[in-house]
Structure formats: structure tokens, C-alpha cells
């Protein structure tokens, strides 16, 4: 049997120890990464307080959005429980932004392609996002950014379980066709391509569609069509809304209201 010289053994040992240390550091790093974020308790309770009672000039969120942020399906007030906190923050900021402050928005693609085949390629001017709403504009303008963050944190942690709403088979079939396959002949993508499979939402930019009141979803599409809501990335949702008929809106909203959906289990 060959015997290693002491010097060589020493070198090998150092090498092995170094590799082991590296592995250990890697493991520790991974473990630290996976640790759940600690919740800022003070901000959470402040958000809860604000949502429940409001303050001077601010109506408590619970008045319309429900005691646990579950929304109001009859009146079409959206559910807030379990939404992404950055999404809530962004929407509040967009509500607070004055439409007159933002720059002009010029639609770069003419709608009727056959009649106007030529467009101005370089005439694209983007605007900061705005959302027009009779109630929310007034409230959001009074809120500070800290309060918006607190509200986002509070509502993102609330649990919510949707109650599926029954609908007839034909409506659901047509809704599923739009939600899962879109309108390929118009090059309209499917809803689930961005809003997540089963409409559960994805990240800060793609809110969940499941578990929202159908009336709210339809109203938002209408607002995009009229231009009253204009806070989407690259006007993508605006373009998509312009391809939806009234029947499409009703079908697809019924499809998402029919899905079972749960977030932040109790």
C-alpha cells in the first residue's frame, strides 16, 4: 500500500477542510435565505387600526371591504385579504396620483388595422399610472406612504377562502376557453398566462382573479376600455380589455367566481 508523505497529506487535509467550510457556508446561506421574513408587528397593528377605524379624513377600509377584507360580492367592492402587499401599495399610490400630473398617453397602435395600416412607430409616450374612482381617490390622497405600506402588510396576511358561485355549463365553458386559451385568432393571450394558473395571482404585478367579485372584475375591464384606469405595464391590460366583448367579460368573470380558492390558511 502506498503511504502519503506527511506534506502531501497536510495539503490534502487543508483542501478537504476548505471544501467542507465552503459547503457549510453555502448551506448556512441557503438556510438563512429560506427563513420566513419577520413581520413588523408595530406596522401590522397600525395597519389593523387604520383598516378598522380609519382616522381623520380617512374612512375605515372595513366599511366597504368587509370586516376581514373579504370584499362585498353584492356591491362589487373588491376583496383585499391575501393580496400582494406591493400590489396594494401600488394601487393606493395610483389612486392618489392626480391624472393631470401625469404625461400624455398616446395609443401607439391604431385599433382598426385594415383602414390605418401605417402607424407612427416612435410616438410612444408612457404615463405614470392613474386609477379613477369616486371613493378611493379622495381617501388615497390623504394617506401617507407609511400608512399605505401598513395597510398593504395588514391585508396581505389576512386569510381568505372563496365561496364558489354556481353558473350554467355553457357560461363556464366559454369562460374557461377565454381564461385558459384566450382568443388566439385576435392574438389575445389567456388570463392564466399572467394571473397564474387557476387565477391565483402572481407577484406584485399580477393580482388574483379568483375570489374577486365578478362585478368588480367586469367594472375594471370597463374602466380600462374607457381609459379611467390606466396603471398597467406597457398598456398590456388595456390592449387586452379592448379585445373583450360584454359577453366575454360576463363569461370569464363567472368562470373565475366559480373556482375554489384559498390564501393564508387559518
Amino acid at each position: 500500500m502506498r503511504v502519503m508523505s506527511a506534506k502531501k497529506l497536510n495539503k490534502t487535509l487543508i483542501f478537504i477542510v476548505l471544501i467542507a467550510l465552503l459547503g457549510l457556508a453555502w448551506w448556512a446561506y441557503q438556510t438563512l435565505q429560506q427563513r420566513p421574513e419577520s413581520v413588523d408587528e408595530a406596522a401590522l397593528s397600525a395597519g389593523e387600526q387604520l383598516a378598522a377605524k380609519g382616522r381623520e379624513g380617512v374612512l375605515g377600509c372595513q366599511t366597504c371591504h368587509g370586516a376581514k377584507g373579504e370584499g362585498n360580492f353584492a356591491a362589487g367592492f373588491p376583496r383585499l385579504a391575501g393580496l400582494n402587499r406591493d400590489y396594494i401599495l401600488k394601487q393606493l399610490q395610483d389612486f392618489a396620483r392626480d391624472p393631470l400630473q401625469t404625461r400624455a398617453h398616446i395609443e401607439p397602435i391604431a385599433r382598426d388595422y385594415e383602414r390605418t395600416p401605417a402607424i407612427y412607430e416612435d410616438l410612444t409616450v408612457y404615463s405614470a399610472g392613474t386609477r379613477t374612482d369616486a371613493i378611493m381617490n379622495g381617501i388615497a390622497k390623504v394617506l401617507t406612504i407609511e400608512e399605505m405600506q401598513q395597510l398593504g402588510l395588514y391585508y396581505s396576511l389576512l386569510p381568505f377562502t372563496a365561496t364558489p358561485v354556481a353558473a350554467d355549463v355553457q357560461t363556464l365553458e366559454r369562460g374557461a376557453e377565454l381564461a385558459l386559451r384566450g382568443k388566439p385568432e385576435y392574438k389575445m393571450p389567456r388570463c392564466t398566462a399572467c394571473h397564474g394558473p387557476k387565477g391565483a395571482g402572481f407577484g406584485a404585478h399580477f393580482p388574483p382573479l379568483a375570489g374577486q367579485p365578478p362585478a368588480y372584475l367586469i367594472k375594471q375591464i370597463n374602466l380600462w376600455q374607457s381609459g379611467a384606469r390606466d396603471n398597467d405595464h406597457l398598456s398590456l391590460m388595456k390592449n387586452i380589455s379592448n379585445l373583450l366583448t360584454d359577453a366575454d367579460k360576463a363569461n370569464v368573470a363567472a368562470y373565475f367566481a366559480n373556482l375554489s380558492y384559498q390564501v393564508n390558511e387559518e
Binding site: Y113, A118, A204, H233
Partner: peptide, 22 residues
């Protein structure tokens, strides 16, 4: 979150006309 399009706003004169094969 910053609307990334705001990083480089394009607002120039319409000089190039293109055809949209939509």
C-alpha cells in the same frame, strides 16, 4: 416597483412609418 418604461421615456418626432402586419 418603478414603471420601468419611465427609465427611458421615448418622445420623439414621428419619422418612421411602419406597416403593422396585425
Amino acid at each position: 416597483e418603478v414603471r420601468p418604461d419611465l427609465v427611458k421615456p421615448r418622445a420623439s418626432l414621428p419619422i418612421q412609418l411602419i406597416k403593422v402586419p396585425a
